[in-house]
Design a binder for these strands. Structure first.
Length: 276
DNA sequence: CGCCAGGTATGAT
DNA sequence: ATCATACATGGC
Protein backbone atom coordinates (compact mmCIF):
# COMPACT_ATOMS: atom_id res chain seq x y z
CA UNK A 1 0.00 0.00 0.00
CA UNK A 2 2.89 2.37 0.70
CA UNK A 3 3.91 2.16 -2.93
CA UNK A 4 0.58 3.69 -3.90
CA UNK A 5 1.76 7.08 -2.74
CA UNK A 6 4.98 6.87 -4.70
CA UNK A 7 3.45 5.44 -7.84
CA UNK A 8 -0.06 6.70 -8.50
CA UNK A 9 -2.30 4.41 -10.50
CA UNK A 10 -2.12 5.16 -14.20
CA UNK A 11 -4.03 4.42 -17.36
CA UNK A 12 -2.59 5.24 -20.76
CA UNK A 13 -4.36 6.08 -24.02
CA UNK A 14 -7.72 6.96 -22.50
CA UNK A 15 -8.99 8.82 -25.57
CA UNK A 16 -11.00 12.04 -25.54
CA UNK A 17 -11.34 13.07 -21.90
CA UNK A 18 -11.47 16.41 -20.14
CA UNK A 19 -11.79 15.89 -16.41
CA UNK A 20 -13.15 19.30 -15.43
CA UNK A 21 -15.64 19.41 -18.28
CA UNK A 22 -16.80 15.89 -17.50
CA UNK A 23 -16.90 16.00 -13.71
CA UNK A 24 -18.09 19.59 -13.24
CA UNK A 25 -20.72 19.94 -15.95
CA UNK A 26 -23.88 19.27 -13.96
CA UNK A 27 -24.19 15.52 -14.52
CA UNK A 28 -22.70 14.69 -11.09
CA UNK A 29 -22.41 16.64 -7.88
CA UNK A 30 -19.63 15.20 -5.72
CA UNK A 31 -16.51 16.47 -7.48
CA UNK A 32 -14.31 19.49 -6.88
CA UNK A 33 -12.04 20.88 -9.58
CA UNK A 34 -8.66 21.95 -8.18
CA UNK A 35 -6.81 25.01 -9.50
CA UNK A 36 -4.38 22.76 -11.40
CA UNK A 37 -7.24 21.06 -13.23
CA UNK A 38 -7.15 17.84 -11.24
CA UNK A 39 -10.45 16.67 -9.76
CA UNK A 40 -11.19 15.25 -6.33
CA UNK A 41 -14.34 13.29 -5.69
CA UNK A 42 -15.99 10.24 -4.21
CA UNK A 43 -17.14 7.24 -6.22
CA UNK A 44 -18.76 4.51 -4.17
CA UNK A 45 -16.33 3.90 -1.33
CA UNK A 46 -13.38 5.49 -3.07
CA UNK A 47 -12.05 8.98 -2.49
CA UNK A 48 -9.86 9.78 -5.45
CA UNK A 49 -8.00 12.63 -7.12
CA UNK A 50 -7.78 12.34 -10.90
CA UNK A 51 -5.37 14.22 -13.09
CA UNK A 52 -4.63 14.01 -16.78
CA UNK A 53 -1.29 14.50 -18.51
CA UNK A 54 -1.84 14.17 -22.20
CA UNK A 55 -3.33 10.74 -22.74
CA UNK A 56 -2.25 9.47 -19.31
CA UNK A 57 -4.84 9.39 -16.55
CA UNK A 58 -3.46 9.37 -13.02
CA UNK A 59 -5.45 8.47 -9.93
CA UNK A 60 -4.19 9.28 -6.44
CA UNK A 61 -5.70 7.52 -3.46
CA UNK A 62 -6.81 4.30 -5.15
CA UNK A 63 -5.16 1.11 -6.37
CA UNK A 64 -4.31 0.33 -9.97
CA UNK A 65 -7.07 -2.30 -9.91
CA UNK A 66 -9.64 0.25 -8.75
CA UNK A 67 -8.65 2.65 -11.50
CA UNK A 68 -8.65 0.01 -14.21
CA UNK A 69 -11.91 -1.52 -12.91
CA UNK A 70 -14.66 0.52 -11.26
CA UNK A 71 -13.22 3.97 -12.01
CA UNK A 72 -12.65 3.23 -15.68
CA UNK A 73 -16.21 2.00 -15.84
CA UNK A 74 -17.47 5.13 -14.03
CA UNK A 75 -15.62 7.30 -16.54
CA UNK A 76 -16.93 5.19 -19.44
CA UNK A 77 -13.40 4.73 -20.73
CA UNK A 78 -14.48 1.57 -22.57
CA UNK A 79 -16.87 3.57 -24.74
CA UNK A 80 -15.44 4.48 -28.15
CA UNK A 81 -15.98 8.23 -28.13
CA UNK A 82 -13.98 8.67 -31.33
CA UNK A 83 -16.52 6.60 -33.23
CA UNK A 84 -19.50 8.28 -31.57
CA UNK A 85 -18.14 11.74 -32.29
CA UNK A 86 -17.58 10.77 -35.90
CA UNK A 87 -21.17 9.57 -36.22
CA UNK A 88 -22.60 12.65 -34.51
CA UNK A 89 -20.44 14.99 -36.60
CA UNK A 90 -22.45 14.12 -39.69
CA UNK A 91 -24.57 16.98 -38.44
CA UNK A 92 -22.60 20.24 -38.83
CA UNK A 93 -24.10 21.83 -35.72
CA UNK A 94 -23.15 18.81 -33.62
CA UNK A 95 -19.69 18.93 -35.15
CA UNK A 96 -19.31 22.48 -33.85
CA UNK A 97 -20.55 21.60 -30.37
CA UNK A 98 -18.18 18.61 -30.21
CA UNK A 99 -15.22 20.67 -31.40
CA UNK A 100 -15.99 23.15 -28.65
CA UNK A 101 -15.52 20.54 -25.90
CA UNK A 102 -14.48 17.14 -27.29
CA UNK A 103 -13.40 15.79 -23.88
CA UNK A 104 -16.84 15.63 -22.26
CA UNK A 105 -18.09 12.16 -21.41
CA UNK A 106 -21.31 10.83 -20.00
CA UNK A 107 -20.48 9.06 -16.75
CA UNK A 108 -21.82 5.75 -15.52
CA UNK A 109 -22.88 6.76 -12.04
CA UNK A 110 -24.60 4.69 -9.41
CA UNK A 111 -28.29 4.57 -10.32
CA UNK A 112 -29.71 5.51 -6.94
CA UNK A 113 -27.22 8.33 -6.52
CA UNK A 114 -28.12 9.74 -9.92
CA UNK A 115 -31.86 9.43 -9.26
CA UNK A 116 -31.65 11.06 -5.85
CA UNK A 117 -29.29 13.80 -7.05
CA UNK A 118 -31.58 14.79 -9.91
CA UNK A 119 -34.62 14.81 -7.65
CA UNK A 120 -32.68 17.39 -5.65
CA UNK A 121 -31.73 19.26 -8.82
CA UNK A 122 -35.24 20.37 -9.73
CA UNK A 123 -35.80 24.13 -9.70
CA UNK A 124 -32.41 24.44 -8.02
CA UNK A 125 -28.93 25.64 -8.92
CA UNK A 126 -25.80 23.55 -9.12
CA UNK A 127 -24.00 25.21 -6.19
CA UNK A 128 -26.91 24.47 -3.90
CA UNK A 129 -27.47 20.98 -5.29
CA UNK A 130 -23.87 20.16 -4.36
CA UNK A 131 -24.37 21.49 -0.84
CA UNK A 132 -27.51 19.46 -0.28
CA UNK A 133 -25.87 16.29 -1.64
CA UNK A 134 -22.88 16.88 0.61
CA UNK A 135 -25.07 17.26 3.69
CA UNK A 136 -27.07 14.20 2.64
CA UNK A 137 -23.91 12.09 2.51
CA UNK A 138 -22.37 13.51 5.70
CA UNK A 139 -25.63 13.16 7.61
CA UNK A 140 -26.88 9.78 6.39
CA UNK A 141 -24.03 8.09 4.53
CA UNK A 142 -21.30 5.91 5.95
CA UNK A 143 -17.93 7.39 6.87
CA UNK A 144 -15.64 4.96 5.04
CA UNK A 145 -12.53 7.13 5.60
CA UNK A 146 -11.96 10.23 7.73
CA UNK A 147 -14.26 12.92 6.41
CA UNK A 148 -15.32 10.77 3.44
CA UNK A 149 -18.90 9.53 3.21
CA UNK A 150 -20.75 7.15 0.93
CA UNK A 151 -23.94 8.25 -0.75
CA UNK A 152 -26.66 6.97 1.62
CA UNK A 153 -28.52 3.87 0.45
CA UNK A 154 -32.32 3.99 0.09
CA UNK A 155 -32.77 1.84 3.19
CA UNK A 156 -30.72 4.33 5.22
CA UNK A 157 -33.22 7.05 4.30
CA UNK A 158 -36.49 5.14 4.02
CA UNK A 159 -37.16 5.15 7.77
CA UNK A 160 -36.48 8.84 8.25
CA UNK A 161 -38.97 11.67 8.46
CA UNK A 162 -39.18 14.97 6.63
CA UNK A 163 -38.19 16.65 9.89
CA UNK A 164 -35.04 14.54 10.14
CA UNK A 165 -34.09 15.60 6.61
CA UNK A 166 -34.43 19.24 7.64
CA UNK A 167 -30.68 19.54 8.14
CA UNK A 168 -30.26 19.10 4.39
CA UNK A 169 -32.09 22.41 3.78
CA UNK A 170 -33.48 20.82 0.65
CA UNK A 171 -36.79 22.63 0.97
CA UNK A 172 -39.86 21.05 -0.63
CA UNK A 173 -37.66 18.28 -2.07
CA UNK A 174 -37.27 16.49 1.27
CA UNK A 175 -40.51 14.58 0.88
CA UNK A 176 -39.55 13.64 -2.67
CA UNK A 177 -36.26 12.17 -1.43
CA UNK A 178 -38.13 10.17 1.20
CA UNK A 179 -40.73 8.92 -1.25
CA UNK A 180 -38.00 7.78 -3.61
CA UNK A 181 -36.04 6.06 -0.85
CA UNK A 182 -39.14 4.25 0.40
CA UNK A 183 -40.35 3.07 -2.98
CA UNK A 184 -36.88 1.86 -3.95
CA UNK A 185 -36.27 0.19 -0.58
CA UNK A 186 -39.61 -1.60 -0.82
CA UNK A 187 -38.87 -2.71 -4.36
CA UNK A 188 -41.96 -0.93 -5.66
CA UNK A 189 -39.52 0.87 -7.93
CA UNK A 190 -37.13 -1.79 -9.19
CA UNK A 191 -33.88 -0.08 -10.06
CA UNK A 192 -32.30 -3.32 -11.26
CA UNK A 193 -34.82 -3.49 -14.10
CA UNK A 194 -34.16 0.00 -15.42
CA UNK A 195 -31.10 -0.71 -17.59
CA UNK A 196 -33.00 -3.16 -19.79
CA UNK A 197 -36.69 -2.25 -19.51
CA UNK A 198 -38.23 -0.66 -22.62
CA UNK A 199 -37.53 3.04 -22.27
CA UNK A 200 -41.15 4.12 -21.82
CA UNK A 201 -41.71 1.53 -19.10
CA UNK A 202 -38.52 2.57 -17.33
CA UNK A 203 -39.69 6.18 -17.39
CA UNK A 204 -43.11 5.25 -16.13
CA UNK A 205 -41.62 3.29 -13.24
CA UNK A 206 -39.45 6.17 -12.12
CA UNK A 207 -42.31 8.64 -12.46
CA UNK A 208 -44.28 6.71 -9.84
CA UNK A 209 -42.03 8.54 -7.41
CA UNK A 210 -43.44 11.87 -6.24
CA UNK A 211 -41.16 14.60 -7.52
CA UNK A 212 -39.93 12.61 -10.50
CA UNK A 213 -41.15 13.93 -13.84
CA UNK A 214 -39.88 13.35 -17.37
CA UNK A 215 -36.70 15.39 -16.97
CA UNK A 216 -35.56 13.83 -13.69
CA UNK A 217 -36.43 10.35 -14.95
CA UNK A 218 -34.43 10.88 -18.14
CA UNK A 219 -31.42 12.22 -16.24
CA UNK A 220 -31.46 9.23 -13.90
CA UNK A 221 -31.77 6.83 -16.83
CA UNK A 222 -28.96 8.47 -18.79
CA UNK A 223 -26.47 9.15 -16.01
CA UNK A 224 -27.29 6.27 -13.67
CA UNK A 225 -28.70 3.43 -15.73
CA UNK A 226 -26.69 3.48 -18.94
CA UNK A 227 -29.55 4.59 -21.18
CA UNK A 228 -27.54 6.53 -23.77
CA UNK A 229 -30.61 7.02 -25.94
CA UNK A 230 -32.17 9.31 -23.32
CA UNK A 231 -32.15 12.99 -24.19
CA UNK A 232 -33.06 14.96 -21.05
CA UNK A 233 -34.80 18.17 -22.10
CA UNK A 234 -34.20 21.04 -19.67
CA UNK A 235 -34.54 24.79 -20.15
CA UNK A 236 -31.11 25.07 -21.77
CA UNK A 237 -31.66 22.23 -24.17
CA UNK A 238 -35.04 23.62 -25.12
CA UNK A 239 -33.33 26.89 -26.04
CA UNK A 240 -30.81 24.96 -28.15
CA UNK A 241 -33.52 22.99 -29.93
CA UNK A 242 -35.60 26.08 -30.66
CA UNK A 243 -32.63 27.99 -32.05
CA UNK A 244 -30.42 25.36 -33.70
CA UNK A 245 -32.88 22.57 -34.55
CA UNK A 246 -36.26 24.18 -35.28
CA UNK A 247 -37.10 21.26 -37.56
CA UNK A 248 -36.23 18.59 -34.99
CA UNK A 249 -33.11 16.60 -34.25
CA UNK A 250 -31.26 14.87 -37.10
CA UNK A 251 -31.45 11.08 -37.14
CA UNK A 252 -27.72 10.58 -36.74
CA UNK A 253 -27.86 11.58 -33.11
CA UNK A 254 -30.70 9.32 -31.96
CA UNK A 255 -28.65 6.26 -30.90
CA UNK A 256 -26.42 8.51 -28.75
CA UNK A 257 -28.94 11.18 -27.84
CA UNK A 258 -27.65 11.44 -24.29
CA UNK A 259 -24.10 12.09 -25.38
CA UNK A 260 -25.25 14.60 -27.98
CA UNK A 261 -27.32 16.29 -25.30
CA UNK A 262 -24.22 16.64 -23.16
CA UNK A 263 -22.27 18.38 -25.93
CA UNK A 264 -25.19 20.68 -26.71
CA UNK A 265 -25.81 21.51 -23.05
CA UNK A 266 -22.19 22.49 -22.55
CA UNK A 267 -22.12 24.39 -25.82
CA UNK A 268 -25.19 26.42 -24.91
CA UNK A 269 -23.96 27.26 -21.44
CA UNK A 270 -20.33 28.09 -22.16
CA UNK A 271 -20.27 29.44 -25.70
CA UNK A 272 -21.76 32.92 -25.60
CA UNK A 273 -23.41 33.80 -28.84
CA UNK A 274 -23.97 30.22 -29.92
CA UNK A 275 -27.69 30.77 -29.58
CA UNK A 276 -27.92 34.34 -30.86
C1' DC B 1 -33.76 43.27 -1.99
C1' DG B 2 -35.80 40.98 -5.75
C1' DC B 3 -34.58 37.46 -9.17
C1' DC B 4 -33.53 32.97 -10.42
C1' DA B 5 -32.16 28.04 -10.29
C1' DG B 6 -30.55 21.18 -15.31
C1' DG B 7 -38.93 20.92 -12.70
C1' DT B 8 -42.98 19.04 -10.78
C1' DA B 9 -47.50 18.80 -8.36
C1' DT B 10 -51.58 20.89 -8.19
C1' DG B 11 -55.66 23.23 -9.28
C1' DA B 12 -57.83 26.10 -12.82
C1' DT B 13 -59.68 26.53 -17.62
C1' DA C 1 -55.47 18.00 -22.48
C1' DT C 2 -53.17 22.28 -21.75
C1' DC C 3 -51.75 26.19 -18.70
C1' DA C 4 -50.41 29.09 -14.73
C1' DT C 5 -48.65 29.05 -10.18
C1' DA C 6 -46.54 27.75 -5.82
C1' DC C 7 -42.82 25.60 -4.01
C1' DA C 8 -37.97 26.11 0.14
C1' DT C 9 -33.67 27.80 0.00
C1' DG C 10 -29.79 30.68 -0.74
C1' DG C 11 -26.31 32.79 -4.22
C1' DC C 12 -26.02 36.71 -6.99
Amino acid sequence: METLLEHPARLVGVGPLNLAQTLDCGQCFRWVVNPDGSCRGIVGRMAVTLSLRGEVLEAAGVSQEALAGPLARYLALDVDYGAIQAALSEDPTMAKAIAHAPGIRVLRQDGWEALCSFIISQNNNIIRIKGIVERLCAGFGEEFAPGCYTFPLPKALAGRTVEELGELRSGFRARYILDAAQKVAEGRVDLAALPTLPLEEARRMLMEITGVGVKVADCALLYGFGRMECFPADVWINRVLARLYPGGLPGCILPYGGIAQQYLFHYARTCPGALD
